[in-house]
Design a protein around this nucleic acid. Structure first.
Lengths: 118, 118
DNA sequence: CTGTATCCCCGTGGATACTG
DNA sequence: CAGTATCCACGGGGATACAG
């Protein structure tokens, strides 16, 4: 048998769907990649982009994505430390899916979501 | 304030990304929608489509998606009960995102994933 | 065939406090 | 500024057994 223990984050290894979802799974991951799609951003900027994320979770997601080769982490040796996160080639590869998700979500919000005009 | 308790499955209510991800979040959800994109399927067929899913989880995901209006559940009054699940209009709306995810995943598998033939 | 009912594991995510 | 360190809650997901 191929699978005694699944990665838990990946339903079906070898499956395109799972391959991609394993990368952008996690509550905040898509938001982060979306934020980074406009160019590199710093830790505090990402916190502002994801208002309700905690520092711990942000760090762990960031580390995770870095380890998976989705993004890069660059520490600038400035007096107050400055860190910039940016997408790798792999991270860029994910953008079409991200964009598609955003598009679909936008359409759904227009439909059932009351415009709310606010 | 707006958010004491978040739905947990939706990072930022009102955000297109979260709107969409809230629907196709969950380990097996995308796989199920993908399986249903070819037309209605029965419970046992879905089990075969997702080899490692348990009956409990399959049921709960199915019920969840039904309640969210993503799919329909039709019980055929046959001697051995037969149940067919199919996508609703909302479910179909999600397909572009699903397809995009599959495409991205396929490309990723081609790149880093050695054919492995296993 | 199509589920239910339990029980349990564990990872994600959150809150808070502290640090170089 | 950019994290670490704890501790905790929750729910998803899994295994197994049973049921209409």
């Amino acid at each position: 048998m191929v699978l005694k223990v699944r990665p838990k984050v990946q339903a079906l290894p070898g499956c395109p769907m799972s391959k991609c979802m394993g990368l952008l799974g996690g509550l905040w991951t898509p938001e982060l990649l979306w934020a980074l799609s406009n160019g590199p951003r710093r830790f505090s900027e990402l916190r502002r982009d994801c208002p309700y994320i905690s520092a711990k979770v942000l760090t762990s997601r960031l580390r995770d994505l870095e380890q998976r080769g989705v993004l890069t982490r660059a520490v600038m040796p400035t007096s107050p430390p400055t860190v910039e996160y940016g997408l790798t080639a792999l991270g860029e590869d994910l953008l079409p899916a991200i964009r598609s998700i955003v598009e679909v979500g936008s359409r759904l919000l227009l439909k059932d979501g009351p415009p709310a005009t606010d």
